[in-house]
Design a protein around this nucleic acid. Structure first.
Lengths: 222, 222
DNA sequence: ATTACTATTCTACGAGTAT
DNA sequence: TATACTCGTAGAATAGTAA
């Protein structure tokens, strides 16, 4: 994906409202972008080869759909620009469903190397276990990217127990509006981008009286 | 301003957080963007000649500030992208201060050509006078650009009383959360972009018990 | 050290045209 | 009609270097 492809992709996105496909000929598309039919055709082919769009040649033109990858490219740019223009929000609300982890969180939270730091930076001793939240809404996945923009409290990296521990970013949060906790983001995350990890001084499932699949709301002060 | 200048400008904006200046050498800037020192230097010179940035050569590099024009370029793009990604908001809140108009609004609102249409599309007969609101916050000025994205009710253009009347877009609004009204945007506006015009069935200054300089909040359902 | 000029290389555009 | 190929050329990127 080259920089020169941004405007063609953006134009397609506007025409198709991100979702949905656009029917257009390379001639008309070129006219819209102020380039020749040949260049428009080449750009579309290139966008396709980069995986940003899917094309189908039909009589009179082509039907173009922006792929997930293409959307992500635009989203990344959008998040960047949001960071530039958004005034500081008071809070960030993220909704998601509880999913079961593989116990990895428990291992890390109970390592003395991290445990001590959690107590220092968050002011509480975390319950030995983490709550994994799968974000439901596309927008919420976007919001987690926003987090990068905001100041976090951080756990230092280092070596202990004969192994290395990486950086961890923490954002104090309120779970379901009532239970204290924090979103923790390991620098080398082992989660897919739509899952975030929560710790709390309490056993969150118990405190919230919730089980896997139930929805929770995470409120982060930023 | 060419498309190829977007990324350099965006990079500068990110480094300087839109406001504030950036100190960097063309060599480092080129490295950051993946181009040669010479190209980075040329781009900076070009951005300067387009009026998007101001530069000052200092020992060890240059101090770069994004101009108002440069910011506007990025804003336009941002607003475009907001239109793509924002889920439909429930309401748009705009804050501003009352400023005195020159009576022009009163003239237009009382023209039979518009008056009848106002009654048709808004469901009320406007008080003979408009309230001019000067937006205080940069973000609010941005919001008014958002309005273009949302469906409006419109007054048709036409000829009456021997003169021509232009298109007018209207957005029903609630003033200070309690008084019914509408934001009106003439297609050929006579206002600077940070001033919007409000009409209402009531005399707004009286109904709100406010005078010039007082703050009002406009809530538009979108 | 820088910035930025000049010369050269090379990429990208568009005219002509095949499919 | 479309899309998209070839290819001559314009303009952009870089190397070398001056200031």
């Amino acid at each position: 994906m080259k920089n020169s492809h941004l405007f063609p992709l953006l134009t397609l996105a506007k025409k198709g409202k991100v979702k949905g496909s656009v029917y257009i000929s390379s001639k008309d598309f070129g006219k819209e972008l102020g380039v020749s039919q040949q260049t428009a055709s080449r750009w579309l082919k290139e966008l396709e080869s980069f995986g940003a769009i899917q094309r189908e040649l039909v009589r009179g033109g082509q039907t173009i759909t922006i792929t997930e990858q293409g959307k992500n490219y635009l989203k990344t740019l959008f998040v960047d620009m949001c960071g530039l223009f958004n005034k500081k929000n008071d809070e960030l609300v993220i909704d998601g469903a509880i999913v079961s982890g593989i116990g990895e969180g428990k291992y890390y939270v109970t390592r003395p190397f991290y445990k001590k730091q959690f107590e220092d930076v968050l002011g509480f001793s975390p319950y030995p276990g983490t709550l994994n939240i799968k974000l439901t809404d596309e927008t919420d996945i976007l919001l987690t990217k926003f987090l990068d923009r905001y100041p976090s409290v951080n756990l230092k990296s280092g070596i202990d127990e004969g192994r290395s521990f990486g950086h961890v970013r923490c954002y104090k949060a309120l779970i379901d509006g009532r239970v204290e906790g924090a979103v923790i983001i390991p620098l080398r995350t082992h989660h897919p981008p739509n899952v975030i990890e929560i710790i709390s001084p309490k056993n969150l499932k118990e405190a919230l009286k919730k089980k896997d699949g139930d929805l929770v709301r995470i409120t982060i002060e930023v």
